[in-house]
Write a protein that binds this DNA or RNA. Structure first.
Length: 951
RNA sequence: GGGCGCAUAGAUCAGUUGGAAGAUCGCUUGGUUUGCAACCAAGAGGCCGGGGGUUCAAAUCCCCCUGCGUCCA
């Protein structure tokens, strides 16, 4: 067995004088042409060499202009060498269902191209793909090099050696890279090391080369030719792999890092966002004078710090205090002796000034692609970024809104032609986010106040549970809680070292618990190996019956089987549409000479349609299939209507409207759309009107099947509203220019057949996703009739015409309220009358008025009576009331703070007498109440009370 | 996708182990003042989100629904 991978020994290395060495620090093998070098370049001993001394020359510009030239140089170089330029994909990975954001250029081609099912858009190709990665979001601004959003420049090759298609492999790939670095960019070859470091992930692996330039990893070249396999002959990190037919070159060149190496600025942020950094420094009053330095001294210090950060690994959650000590000690070794205060005073504001433009860029990328902020899924990521910006803005004391920040960013750093969202839409969304953030802070203050009000002001720590709950449930981070508590007077409070790391661990543990995915049980145990079912429903959507032969008859399994269905029938062809794309499966019947069965549902398993039948057929039977056409037509009404409503919503509300889910049943349809605020009835009316206009105006829907590559190119990724489809052929439904999407459902050829569309109501599925409830065709009429029935029934109750229902109902309601109040005051009056006189119920014991009587009424009425009796402090009273209602009720009360309450304990008296009604009870010493299950014992209970008290 | 929290007067929110529905602001009326602000006094204003359950007793405990918030993946 061949353990591991062979050395990467290429002609291009030898031709350029490179030799293979083992790194003294990491133990990795690497190639270098510097005779003195014994480290691979990416170690804690290899400092950046380009700070203040650009390693790539000829790029004096900064910011957007620098990025544009660098990108152009890269792609232009590859174009000259036979690569085709591909336009970047969106940062929202809508063609995938496993990730929200595009995290690498290769993500564009996963899973269909990398699996070999679909041809790449070009081969070999060159691209610069905007990516977003939020794993290291805490390090952004602090490390000098981390970014949440960056462009991954790449050349990709998809080889199929078995089919004789081998474009190029390692040798040519590394040569392209080396020629680019040392030729086009003029980098000194001694600064470049190639580190052998096999790559593995997601079931694939292969040899890989990390390209380190001046101590910074500028690129990675991955040669993916292995797939996980139990009897594989190559082992990497304990997993066995074998070669696969598709061999892919996946490279990644960090555009921003090239820019940094060409600019030689203290941090990467000054290279790519220089105007923003300057602007924010000004706005925040950050200048060298503030630290008693001149600009040169400050720059030199920052450069030194950046070099140090480059070799010290700052991990989120590591011990900040210790890290800082080591850092400051090493900084002092380099002639920059500063104390902790100065260090903090410089790095805290600066890290925010650096992070804000990066975060704004990520926001522009995400929202620009039409993302709507939300409390779940990808939308949450955008909200989190927006909140981080707002938080940093507040900490910097900037008098700027999120909208101000984004406008500045678009103006200075962004190429607006990339944006699908309008600038106006962007500003509206961000204004909404800022309002929400302000509201969260306001509420948070209140929450903290309530949570800590019983905690003594002298303590120095808050219970962990309080901090966890406030963070998780109210969005107030622990250190913000400290600030708020401090303002409220708890001056000694501090946050325990490592608390934030503990909280992160806790969240990680929770996420682990939640990871147990529920997999739906298959409805058949074994999928038979018979030819794929031919779908007649695509050729003619109005075909209602057909002849077919039975290929398999299966036993049905699982919980998800309709009542009465016993067998799954597989035919060679069918008009039964199987459940899919939110459209429910068809019903109907199958008949042959010897049997006739009802079909209760149709499902798709792999490429077979399974007819859920009430009985079996023999394999080989010729059957006649008959569709429940009323049901199917209604489903088509609803499915087609959903497309039309979605298109109408997009046209009226904006380009961020995207389908987040849909369901089409017989009674109604649901369409979930992404939108940043709740829809009003007026919004719904407008969408409804436009949808009905479309039905009238568009005479035919257009259906076509395209190769995925052509579909992507022609219509873009908005096609995949219904989710990421599988396979290489994409069925497309087009309703004029109104709506175009990939969809495998059945639709009317003529939209007019729907008749009418009504949007019944909307509700929020989650923040940022609005669910529209739609009825169309006959269902719309049934719905309208049903509504009218409800109205008529309600009107009959009030005995008024339907038109007068609202007036009548509101008058009845206010009368009911008035009368309720009147009854209350009358009850009080009765109590006053009953308790004011002398009578046999009233006695006096030791100067305390004692009232013992049986009354009518429930606990609430009795409570009022007791109030009347005992609230007057000039007449100290002990009252015992009993009622026969609900099994018998007893109440005992004394006048508070009087001789009555001193002499008598209401709870004791109640307990002493409640046995007579077989019950219990309790309360306070001055007010007790109880009940039982023996109303007839009430007189005895009251007599017992008299004896007990001595009245 | 998973977790947590909230819903009480027109507004903002308290409400302890289940046992008498509250505060502040606003509102109305009266007083004070040339007038306003301020102040004093009195008063009105509650299906405690909806539905079910447990209990002698639920704003409070349990379940479901609706609306809202928030954290994590």
């Amino acid at each position: 067995m061949n353990m591991g991978l062979p050395p990467i020994d290429l002609k291009v290395f030898h031709d350029n004088g490179y030799t293979r060495q083992e790194c003294r620090v990491t133990g990795l093998w690497f190639w270098t042409c510097d005779p003195d070098r014994d480290t691979c370049g990416d170690t804690e001993e290899d400092e950046y060499t380009f700070i203040g001394a650009p390693i790539i020359s000829g790029y004096d510009m900064r910011g957007r202009e620098l990025k544009d030239s660098m990108r152009e140089a890269f792609i232009g170089f590859l174009e000259k060498r036979g690569h085709t330029r591909i336009q970047p994909y969106p940062v929202l990975a809508r063609w995938r269902d496993d990730i929200h954001l595009t995290i690498a250029s290769i993500a564009d081609f996963q899973p269909h191209v990398t699996s070999g099912d679909v041809e790449p858009p070009a081969n070999p190709l060159a691209i610069s793909q905007p990516c977003i990665r939020l794993n290291d979001v805490d390090a952004v601004g602090r490390s000098g090099r981390h970014l949440t959003t960056f462009e991954m420049m790449a050349h990709h090759v998809f080889n199929k050696p078995d089919e004789g298609r081998m474009f190029y492999w390692m040798e040519e790939c590394v040569k392209h890279c080396h020629d680019l670095l040392c030729g086009t960019f003029g980098i000194d070859p001694e600064e470049v090391t190639y580190v052998e470091n096999p790559w593995s992930g997601g079931g694939n692996a292969g040899p890989a080369v990390e390209v380190i330039v001046g101590g910074l990893e500028l690129a990675t070249l991955v040669f993916m030719n292995l797939a996980e396999s139990d009897d594989g002959e190559i082992e990497i990190k304990g997993v066995k792999y074998s070669e696969m037919p598709l061999q892919i070159i996946d490279t990644g060149y960090g555009l921003e890092r090239f820019c940094w190496a060409a600019a030689g600025t203290p941090t990467i942020y000054e290279a790519i966002y220089p105007e923003s950094v300057e602007w924010l420094k000004q706005m925040a009053g950050f200048s060298s004078e503030r630290f008693d330095m001149n600009q040169t001294e400050l720059d030199s210090l920052l450069g030194e710090m950046s070099r140090l950060f480059g070799i010290m690994n700052i991990e989120a959650g590591s011990d900040g205090d210790r890290m800082r000590e080591v850092f400051l000690a090493r900084l002092a070794e380099r002639g920059h002796s500063i104390d902790v205060e100065l260090f903090t005073a410089i790095t805290e504001p600066l890290s925010r000034i650096y992070a804000i433009p990066d975060h704004m860029h990520a926001l522009a990328n995400m929202l620009g692609d039409g993302l709507v902020p939300s409390n779940a899924k990808a939308g949450y990521l955008a909200r989190m970024i927006a909140r981080r910006v707002l938080r940093m803005r507040d900490e910097l004391g900037l008098n700027l809104s999120l909208a101000d920040l984004v406008m500045h960013h678009l103006d200075v750093n962004y190429s607006a032609e990339r944006m699908k969202q309008t600038q106006e839409g962007l500003v509206t969304i961000l204004k909404g986010e800022e309002e929400r953030y302000d509201e969260m802070l306001r509420k948070g203050n209140q929450v903290v106040k309530t949570a800590i009000k019983d905690i003594p002001q002298g303590v120095d720590e808050l219970p962990d549970e309080i901090l966890f709950t406030i963070n998780d449930s109210h969005g107030i981070a622990p250190d913000l809680v400290m600030n708020i508590a401090n303002d409220l007077g708890w001056k000694n409070l501090t946050l325990r070292t490592g608390f934030n790391a503990e909280m992160a661990e806790r969240h990680a543990a929770m996420a682990k618990d939640a990871a147990k995915a529920v997999v739906a049980k298959p409805i058949v145990e074994h999928v038979p190996s018979v030819p794929a079912t031919i779908p007649l429903y695509y050729e003619d959507v109005s075909q209602q019956n057909f002849e077919a032969s039975v290929l398999a008859c299966l036993e049905l399994k699982g919980d998800d089987i309709p009542e009465g269905a016993t067998h799954g029938i597989v035919l060679d062809r069918t008009c039964f549409y199987p459940e899919g794309g939110g459209q429910e499966g068809d019903h109907g019947s199958l008949t042959c000479d010897s049997a006739s069965n009802v079909i209760l549902d149709s499902r798709k398993v792999d490429d077979l349609v399974i007819h859920l039948s009430t009985g079996p057929f023999e394999v080989g039977d010729m059957v006649h299939g008959e569709l429940d056409w009323g049901r199917r037509r209604q489903l088509m009404d609803h499915h087609t209507a959903v497309h039309i409503v979605g298109g109408a919503a997009r046209r009226l509300l904006g380009p961020h409207i995207y389908q987040a889910g849909a369901n089409k049943s017989v009674d109604s349809a649901r369409l979930d759309i992404t939108h940043h605020k709740r829809l009003s009835r007026q919004d719904l009316d407008e969408i409804e009107s436009l949808a009905n206009e479309v039905i009238q105006k568009v005479s035919r829907t257009e259906k076509m099947t395209l190769d995925r590559k052509d579909a992507d190119r022609k219509y873009g990724f908005d096609l995949y509203q219904g989710g990421a489809p599988k396979g290489s052929d994409i069925r497309i439904l087009r309703i004029a220019d109104h709506d175009i999407q990939a969809c495998g459902g059945t639709h009317h050829d003529e939209p007019g057949r729907i008749g009418q569309i009504r949007i019944v109501r909307s509700n929020a599925v989650q923040d940022g996703v609005e669910r529209l409830h739609i009825v169309a065709g006959d269902a719309a009429m049934r719905y309208a009739r049903n509504q009218e029935d409800i109205l008529r029934d309600a009107a009959d109750v009030f005995q008024v015409p339907v038109e007068e229902l609202p007036t009548k109902a509101s008058r009845m309601f206010s009368e009911w309220k008035d009368q309720r109040k009147k009854i209350e005051s009358l009850e009080a009056e009765i109590v006053r009358l009953r308790t004011s006189g002398g009578g046999e119920d009233i006695a006096e014991v030791d100067g305390v008025r004692v009232v013992i009587m049986e009354v009518d009424g429930d606990l609430k009425t009795m409570t009022k009576m007791l109030k009347e009796l005992t609230l007057d402090s000039s007449k100290p009273t002990l009252a015992v009331l009993g009622s026969r209602e609900g099994g018998g009720k007893l109440m005992v009360a004394t006048t508070e703070n009087s001789i009555a309450s001193e002499k008598f304990n209401a709870v004791d008296i109640l307990r002493g007498i409640s046995s007579h009604i077989r019950g219990g009870g309790g309360g306070r010493p001055t007010f007790a109440q109880g009940g039982g299950s023996n109303p007839d014992g009430l007189p005895d209970a009251l007599d017992a009370a008299k004896q007990l008290i001595g009245a």
